[in-house]
């Protein structure tokens, strides 16, 4: 019996091994490396042998990034805003579209396909398309602005404030994948539940609010985490549209600047930003968990109960 148990354990371990090895080699090891090297001098002068600053000086990179590096706070602020926009703008938009596409109406399939098509275009290509749209000479945005402001000739990608929103609009409405994930979950809501709700007098918007949305909360939570983190990690749009001009740096773009653009190949400092990025990413996940915490669900169900 005992030997069988060992054999079983052996099988379990053997089948887990590839996953565990992948986890340690490709996930844990890089994270630990990023964390450790953030306390090291690691640049062009010692590219193959990062050097620990020592206990007294261990925060050197953090001091540089937080106190000296000129684009860090701007990048962090922008990335946090993009993350929140993902959460509070992108997800509601995707949910509304998913609810609309779940209706059994004529033409809904075509509308769904049309909605999805732009999501097949890479973010890089989309960046180039928006670069043309925003071109003050040939784009379509400036003529629209001129309807309201006759003499407007500026390049909106160079205006502080508008540039941030121009960059945001280049990605925020492309919610095809998220919409599909939500839609798939909506379709899985049992028809009997809807019918029961209809018999109780809940139809249309009420049914969506009190039946469908609470039942797909798990998926909404998951896509919220995805949207918030992808907003926080935004890179391509910054690279293709502004390269950080007019206050549009992002955390990911800063990492590139330090590690690749800088002739000093500042891997240590780049990893310091990466550590902050990882910690902020964890905070975002906590925030999403807080928003979708169980208490609210119970309250909603109670409201439904009262409504019924």
């Amino acid at each position: 019996m005992k030997s069988l148990s060992w054999r079983k354990r052996g099988f379990i371990l053997a089948f887990l091994a590839p996953t565990l090895i992948c986890f340690f080699v490709f996930y844990l090891y890089p994270i630990v490396t990023v964390f450790l090297t953030s306390f090291c001098k690691w640049d062009f002068s010692n590219i193959t042998s990062p050097q620990f600053f020592g206990i007294k000086e261990m925060w050197t990179n953090y001091k540089y990034i937080l106190q000296t590096y000129p684009f860090f706070w701007e990048g962090l602020r922008n990335s946090v805003i993009w993350s929140l926009l993902g959460l509070f703008l992108q997800i509601p938009i995707a949910t509304i579209f998913a609810l609309a596409f779940s209706r059994k109406m004529k033409g809904v399939k075509i509308a769904r396909n049309i909605f999805i098509i732009p999501n097949m275009i890479s973010t890089a290509a989309m960046g180039m398309i928006f670069l043309q749209l925003y071109s003050p000479l040939y784009g379509v945005v400036n003529p629209v602005i001129r309807i309201f402001k006759k003499d407007f000739t500026e390049n909106i990608l160079l205006l502080k404030g508008p540039a941030f929103w121009a960059l945001t609009f280049a990605y925020i409405f492309f919610t095809g994948t998220t919409t599909l994930m939500i839609l798939g979950n909506i379709m899985a809501v049992p028809e009997e539940v809807r019918e029961a709700a209809m018999l109780d007098g809940a139809s249309g918007f009420k049914q969506d609010l009190y039946i469908t949305i609470p039942m797909i909360k798990g998926t909404l939570k998951m896509v919220s985490i995805l949207a918030a983190t992808s907003g926080f990690l935004l890179y391509n749009e910054v690279f293709f549209l502004t390269k950080g001009a007019a206050g549009t740096y992002s955390i990911s773009y800063i990492i590139r600047e330090l590690a690749i653009t800088s002739p000093k190949t500042q891997f240590g400092r780049a990893n310091t930003v990466a550590v902050i990025q990882i910690l902020a990413g964890m905070l975002i996940i906590l925030l999403v968990n807080f928003i979708y915490r169980e208490r609210k669900q119970k309250k909603r169900y109670n409201e439904v109960g009262e409504g019924a």
Binding site: N155, L158, K243
Partner: peptide, 19 residues
């Protein structure tokens, strides 16, 4: 002066082009 310096200068010049 390096690519990072050039990038910062170009961004500054481009922002100055706004009236």
């Amino acid at each position: 002066w390096g690519d990072d310096v050039k990038g910062a200068m170009i961004n500054a010049l481009m922002e100055c082009a706004v009236s």
